[in-house]
């Protein structure tokens, strides 16, 4: 089968429109994951131990099962309980929960990297919890957490093609539809791969720049 450029340009507008949906799904999913991660983190550090343990087990369960199966679970099981979720809603809930568990680990790693002496110093200086967090702890935890946070942004982006399976109209879904309409699969699928490469490589490079900039602002010279 030969590559056809006229066909490529014919389907380009639809592919680009779908790229917008892919990006939207990745960004909304990421925003939810950031918040869910924080909730999981806090629920693992309460004063009530059973809550910590149960949250820990839930996080472990979500982390060790496939996103695809979770996606189908949420999409098909919710209606059994009288709650009909659209494909988009199911997708965002699943991505938010799944990557929220990863995000909570990233946050935890960042917080653990702050030496204990810093907390004690804040206590000794009689700083309130808000000032302790925002002026002392978070500025030191953020550079440690940043690479992980960035990697999961790209990770979510690269997992969005799975959403096509429950009918979210993103890139992969559009490529499947175009293939079914025209019986040409070469161009749509190759274009999806190319578009992914064109977005994820610059994003990864940008994130490395951001990490370097944050490290510099912290007065640490990287490499």
């Amino acid at each position: 089968m030969q590559w056809r450029w006229d066909f490529t340009f014919e389907i380009l507008p639809r592919m680009l429109w779908a790229t917008g949906n892919t990006l939207l799904a990745a960004l909304i999913g990421y925003a939810i994951a950031l918040v869910v991660g924080l909730i999981f983190l806090l629920l693992q550090q309460t004063r009530f131990r059973p809550v910590n343990i149960i949250t820990r087990e839930i996080v472990e369960f979500i982390r060790s099962t496939p996103l695809l199966v979770q996606l189908f679970f949420v999409y098909f099981v919710a209606p059994q309980f009288g709650l009909t979720l659209s494909a988009w809603t199911s997708a965002m809930i699943t991505i938010g929960l799944h990557f929220g568990t990863y995000m909570s680990e990233v946050y935890r790693g960042g917080l653990n990297a702050v030496p204990k002496g810093q907390w004690e110093a804040c206590r000794a200086l009689n700083m309130g919890p808000v000032r302790t967090y925002f002026r002392v702890i978070l500025p030191q935890a953020l550079p440690v957490a940043l690479p992980g946070m960035g990697n999961y942004l790209i990770g979510i982006f690269k997992d969005t093609p799975m959403l096509a399976t429950i009918g979210v109209a993103e890139l992969m879904h559009t490529a499947n539809a175009l293939g079914a309409e025209t019986y040409r699969y070469l161009e749509p699928y190759t274009m999806v791969g190319f578009i992914f490469l064109m977005i994820s490589l610059p994003t990864a490079a940008g994130l490395r720049k951001l990490e370097a900039a944050v490290a510099r602002a912290q007065g640490k010279i990287k490499r």
């Binding site: 690269k158 190759t190 999806v192 992914f196 490469l197 994820s200």
Partner: peptide
């Protein structure tokens, strides 16, 4: 690493 696994699988 830059293209998605599912895309590679379909390809």
């Amino acid at each position: 690493r830059g293209t998605s696994l599912l895309v590679q699988l379909y390809w």
